[in-house]
Write a protein that binds this DNA or RNA. Structure first.
Lengths: 215, 215, 215, 215
DNA sequence: CCTTAATCGAGACGGTACGTCATGTCTTGGG
DNA sequence: CCCAAGACATGACGTACCGTCTCGATTAAGG
């Protein structure tokens, strides 16, 4: 996905080689500008300025902002690593922790910044799913499938829907409030929604942590 | 919120009065352009052209695109009317029907088009909540509170969270697919998520209607 | 030649009419920039800035710098009006006066600024001849033909060549010195070259006015 | 003026010596680009590309395009060698032949390409006179002075002006037509202008060779 | 009826941001 | 140390819009 992979044709590398530190600076600046201004207001020139780089240096690597943003998304680490504590409750606890980590919060900001361009940019949508949506759901699906294998889940559970609940509601919360959701809200989702969906009794949250979904 | 309310000072209305049909044409065009291009790419000039109207006619009424869009949102009817069939099941059935009506689908498109500008425009966010989010949640909260009054809900149910589930997940679906969600998906949300959250057993859906949340 | 002559199709003049003062400001600025920077270094943006005008205002009228410069040349008055004193000597005296007038000197500066682009721009060359070269030669040819009709010139005189001598040598002088030639040089051309070519004895010039052709 | 003269300090010449063939290639390319694009459009990069040479190789030798062009002009042989046939008529015949030789025609193209930059580049103007203008005039002045010594010229002849006539009018012709003047035009200058200026009767030219000065 | 005044569509205006391109400098690997 | 290739920061260019301003024409209300 990176634009500067020479793949097979290893030409003798003529001329001055590209400075790898520029790639990183541009990608970092692109993320910053994206979060600050949103996808539609992001311009290649703005990214170049924010990166302290000439415009030509940006265009030499990425010929359009869609390609740049897609590559920038690709460099962001997935929010949730593989999880397997041996019990559903333990796994969910780790999911909650991962979903409200600082890195995950930044990912939510990026997602919010991009989302309204998705209907008009199919390639952006595809990358968005590949990089953000699917990894989260895949981890959660793994957890639920293992729990089902251990007999912890009944046969009626809609695993696909359950797996999407936490990221969907967290993103929704970020959209509606302008700020990424915190740990309190993640626990509320788990206690009020995810556990009942999985056939467990709801787990009330302490009053001080209670949050309404859209404030 | 409408800009052309004469407030108190009813001057003798000298000169040619404004043509009310222009207001409607501009608002309609604003919605169309909003859905087609998104909030950030919407321009006053584009709206004027789409409405077949001079730019001055637009600026005479709304001095910025934020004001125009806010007023345009205000003219959209809420998606869900007051509902009270006497039973929780009946009410939820009507909610499902309302949530996937053509009018509601258009509302979701508008919401998607606006959402990424929300972090940068507090007034837009406020109007968004007032016009879109809160009416939906309020209707659902009413339904759930009445059901609780009838003893149909246990005391542990997180009503606020439950009330936000359907609109949140429907909007999420629209974001991720580029198309508004249909009836099949609304029923899946109810069967797989809302009913368990309300303490009822899940209601499996027919295989042909099953949809994964993000495709 | 002006770009904004509506010619035949007199549409009902919809919209705001163009401001004629802008045309003049742009043309004047174009001449200034042309003399200062030369044709190749002249840019539409530079003209717009010098005219205190937006770039769009320039491009709305002239779509390329060749068109702008051609129209700018068209607004410059010819250097020499029609001349007929009744005698060859009297006519030549007036030609000398006209050839070193301030207006004529400015025309020479413009000609110098344009000349090196002529080989690469046929339309510019055509306009150059029409506006600068031919009027000068035509006036001089008229004078010489009338003199011939009065019997003042012998039959061997090459009128076409003689008519081109003064402007050619004046322009050459401007090219070689960076400054338009003055009256002394014009008289030297007449006394040392034109009169002998016309079959008259040379007229020596006072020593103090003598100039070498390329200093 | 050549940049690669080691002057006095003959350092031990460390490292790889410069390749003299590069100097020639660059100079030749500079002349080609100059004639093709004109002085203002000539760029160091364009010259390097045309010469099949790296930009650094050009800048190592000449630090600006003015220096490069001045040196390029210096390598061009003068158009007219020393002439002395013993008679004025014979000398003039050789001058005509030299003035329309292929090499002289190329020189005129170079002169046309440079001329409009002269008002803005004093050093270029100085080199232009030294390399192009003065040699031509000096040869012609020599011829005329010798003729005067032989008693072939009257005392009133303006030698300096007469010496400049042929090159001035030939260059003018090249400017106005885009093509270097040919032999027919050179003979016309001599017959119609130079001979009368020198006190001789005009020499009519055959009708087929007649040319108007600016077509 | 006729004046007055604010409206309307259309488009010109100054300004600005964009992506492209060219310039001169710097930095590779190789000779 | 030279050479060809080309990456680099900078900046100018022509284009495309934006929001404001200005035109002739239209339309109602007040005299």
């Amino acid at each position: 996905m990176e634009s500067n992979d020479t793949v097979i044709t290893d030409e003798p590398t003529r001329g001055r080689p590209r400075d790898p530190s520029r790639d990183e600076a541009i990608i970092d600046a692109a993320i910053d500008v994206l979060v600050r201004d949103g996808y539609d207001r992001l311009s290649m020139e703005g990214v170049a300025t924010a990166a302290g780089v000439g415009k030509a240096t940006v265009y030499r690597r990425w010929s359009s902002k869609a390609e740049l943003v897609i590559d920038a998304m690709a460099t962001l680490k997935p929010a949730i690593d593989s999880i397997d504590t041996g019990s559903l409750e333990g796994d969910i606890e780790l999911v909650v922790a991962a979903s409200c980590s600082p890195h995950s919060q930044r990912l939510f900001q990026v997602m919010v910044s991009i989302c309204s361009a998705l209907p008009r940019e199919p390639e952006l949508l595809a990358a968005f799913k590949t990089r953000f949506t699917e990894p989260r759901i895949a981890r959660m699906t793994d957890i639920l499938e293992r729990a089902r294998g251990r007999g912890e889940l009944g046969p009626d559970i809609d695993v696909a829907m359950a797996a999407s609940l936490v990221p969907s509601l967290m993103l929704q919360r970020a959209l509606m409030t302008g700020q990424p959701a915190g740990r309190g809200y993640a626990e509320q989702i788990v206690g009020s929604v995810l556990l009942p969906v999985l056939g467990r009794p709801p787990r009330p949250i302490s009053t001080k942590d209670a949050e309404t979904p859209h404030d």
